[in-house]
């Protein structure tokens, strides 16, 4: 990214911080799951905290809050990002998608269907992050190989499944097959 582009982006981000609201609170405008919402929040809060605590979007989970486990992954402008490693204000001008935004018109995303049908969720806690990371992959590369899926999901820890059914479910979604 060119320097000027970067500073422009930063400026845009600042614009989304509408005004200071005493005691470190700011009014932040975020576009999440296609919906623009304003929240009064601390500028020091991570995107994870803003989503969960200020916007009530608890579908995004946390596993370490240090960027080590991938549990809190959300999409920012189509890229999978760790919401625990960025501030809410940094996401100001982007399009954020959380797991709650995966369903469209009340219908589950193909990945949600195949994950449910193949038993890819056990405790389910890492699944929102896994689903979004897989979605980011498929949006860019609709026909990844199993190794490419492995690579893409290598930052998302799952302690339940041994990843087998997760990889199977992504592959099934890639095939475009209706879940059995």
């Amino acid at each position: 990214m060119a320097v000027s582009e970067r500073s422009q982006k930063r400026k845009k981000r600042r614009n989304s911080v509408l005004f200071e609201q005493g005691a470190g609170k700011i009014l932040l405008r975020l576009k999440v799951n296609g919906e623009t919402r304003e929240v009064a929040t601390e500028g020091s809060k991570t995107l994870l905290e803003v989503l969960r605590e200020d916007m009530g979007l608890t579908g995004t989970k946390h596993g370490c809050e240090l960027g080590e486990c991938g549990t809190c992954a959300v999409l920012l402008d189509g890229e999978s990002v760790l919401s625990c490693l960025m501030l809410g204000v940094e996401a100001g001008d982007g399009e954020i998608v959380t797991v709650e935004g995966m369903m469209q018109d009340g219908k589950p995303h193909p990945l949600q269907k195949t994950f449910a049908a193949l038993g890819a969720t056990q405790c389910g806690y890492c699944i929102p992050g896994v689903l979004l990371t897989a979605k980011a992959l498929l949006d860019k590369n609709p026909h990844p190989s199993r190794d490419e899926i492995r690579q893409a999901l290598s930052g998302n820890l799952c302690r339940c499944t041994g990843y087998t059914k997760i990889l199977d479910a992504v592959e099934l979604a890639v095939k475009g097959a209706e879940a059995p």
Binding site: R52, G56, T58, G59, T60, K61, H62, T98, V99, E100, M102, M103, P108, L111, Q112, F115, A116, A117, G119, T121, G124, Y125, I127, P128, L131, P180
Partner: peptide, 23 residues
């Protein structure tokens, strides 16, 4: 039969309420 779990779709939709999701 290889049926889905009864809570599978809630977990995939991010609707399952874990302890820290309770407010």
């Amino acid at each position: 039969k290889p049926l889905p779990k009864v809570d599978a779709m809630a977990k995939c939709a991010g609707e399952t309420v874990y302890a820290d999701d309770l407010n």
